[in-house]
Amino acid sequence: MTNKKIRVLITKPGIDGHWRGGIVVARALRDAGMELIFGGFQNIDQIVESAIHEDVDVIGMSIHSGAHMAYTRQLFERLKEKGVENDFLVILGGVIPVNDFPRLKGLGVANIFGPGTITKDIVDFITNNIES
């Protein structure tokens, strides 16, 4: 594990085009030495397909549309269908209210990074959770 670079998919589920957050995070993870796959707009099927084909360790979904519950639910349903729900560290970023964090974590999300996040915290979280 320690010799292999951590591979991360940063993706935007749906059609909402608020792009700044996803790209800032993608760049920060790449600068921290991770291998980065930027999915852009993807539907849930495409996200799961990319994650499997690209053999990533982390799926990061950037959501500013308010539809974070719906997309996260769909993601875990699809991962379960494929039998890979334990293969990825799933993290979210965007305008997601703290009130929804418990429900999202209940679905299987490892962490949620809301407005004002320092990118180093995301890098540290991924590094600590993939290496351990």
Partner: peptide, 15 residues
């Protein structure tokens, strides 16, 4: 996009 399009359907009226 019309709401019958599955890619965007969860975002009807959310933003």
């Amino acid at each position: 996009i019309d709401p019958s399009n599955k890619d965007g359907a969860p975002e009807v009226g959310t933003s």
